[in-house]
Amino acid sequence: MATTSERHPVERLLAIMARLRDPESGCPWDRRQTFESLIPHTLEEAYEVADAIERGDYDDLCDELGDLLLQVVFYARIAEERGLFDFHQVVERLCDKLERRHPHVFAGVRFASEEERKRAWEAVKQAERRAKGRDEAETGVLDDVPVTLPALLQAEEIQNRAARQGFDWVEAAPVFAKVEEELQELREAWASGDEAHICEEVGDLLFVAVNLARHLGVHPETALRQSNRKFARRFRYMERRLAASGRKMTDVPLGDLDALWEEAKEGREA
């Protein structure tokens, strides 16, 4: 009988997870986990993958992809214990779906245009929904957008689906105008002092900003993450400069902070 280390890596991983979940000799923490308790860990691991990619740390990316794969194996093991499905069924369904959704690669189908390929993709997805018992007459295209997605990603997915139904601007110029319109409405709400109205208009402005990003070919989540890192880098530069002079940021006039910020913008924070 092959030892754990002699098995195929995937089979070895599945065996390790089974051992961790063993009711008698497994790890207490691993045994306690459920579908629901793993959700925050899965989201965290997905973001750590994104972070490694954005930092260009590909050695770390290898580790983080392993951590993300562990989440899939963990869910599959819990499902197997409940008699729902197992890891191999997850893989088989994924393989079937990839082949089904790419007939131009696996079935010799030829599409005359990218638009035709997209229509075929949507037709396959609609067929998949029908196969799951979802009545097209009762199910809207937005009904299965995950409500737990981060708001920026959810807005982008909603807009992409609406666009595939023809409800979208054909170019970016009118979206710029819509951003300006929403900004003016936010100014008016702010002047009114109505907090609920202000919140609503802030949401509308963010939603249309996502739409503008789409039309400019920019992924809004990625763009915002880059801006967050840029702000943090410049802010840390200010902290270092102030610490070197024995000052605290809270005691420094705003004008001096602005001057330090400009230094950071000139690239001195590197």
Rank of each mutant, 00 (worst) to 15 (best):
D204I: 03
D204N: 11
L205R: 04
L206M: 13
L206F: 12
L206N: 05
L206Y: 07
F207Y: 15
A209M: 12
A209C: 15
N211H: 13
N211W: 03
N211A: 13
N211T: 14
N211R: 12
L212P: 01
L212E: 03
A213F: 07
A213M: 08
A213L: 07
A213G: 12
A213E: 04
R214L: 04
R214C: 02
R214W: 02
H215K: 15
H215Y: 09
H215V: 10
H215M: 15
H215N: 15
L216D: 09
L216H: 02
G217E: 05
G217T: 10
G217L: 08
H219V: 08
P220L: 05
E221G: 12
E221T: 13
E221F: 13
E221V: 12
T222A: 11
A223C: 03
A223K: 00
A223T: 00
L224H: 01
L224F: 04
L224K: 06
R225T: 04
R225L: 11
R225E: 09
R225S: 08
Q226T: 06
Q226F: 03
Q226R: 09
Q226I: 07
S227M: 14
S227E: 11
N228M: 13
N228D: 14
N228V: 13
R229L: 00
R229Q: 05
R229S: 05
K230G: 06
K230Q: 13
K230F: 10
K230I: 09
F231S: 09
F231K: 14
F231D: 07
F231H: 13
F231W: 10
A232T: 09
A232E: 11
A232F: 07
R233S: 14
R233C: 07
R234N: 14
F235E: 12
R236G: 09
Y237K: 06
Y237E: 02
Y237T: 01
Y237I: 07
M238V: 14
M238N: 08
M238W: 04
E239C: 10
R241W: 02
R241P: 04
R241G: 05
R241L: 09
R241M: 11
R241E: 13
R241C: 09
R241A: 14
A243D: 10
A243I: 04
A243Q: 08
A244C: 07
S245E: 15
S245K: 10
S245V: 10
S245A: 15
G246D: 01
G246F: 00
R247W: 03
R247K: 11
K248R: 13
K248S: 10
K248N: 08
K248P: 00
M249Y: 02
M249I: 11
M249F: 03
M249G: 11
M249N: 05
M249S: 07
T250H: 14
T250I: 15
D251K: 08
D251R: 08
V252M: 05
P253A: 08
P253E: 05
P253V: 07
P253F: 05
G255C: 03
G255T: 10
G255K: 03
L257S: 06
L257H: 04
L257F: 06
D258G: 07
D258M: 14
D258A: 15
D258P: 00
A259I: 01
L260E: 03
L260F: 07
L260H: 01
W261I: 04
W261S: 06
E262S: 10
E263G: 00
E263V: 02
A264R: 00
K265H: 09
K265N: 10
E266K: 15
E266S: 15
E266G: 14
G267A: 09
G267C: 04
G267R: 05
G267W: 00
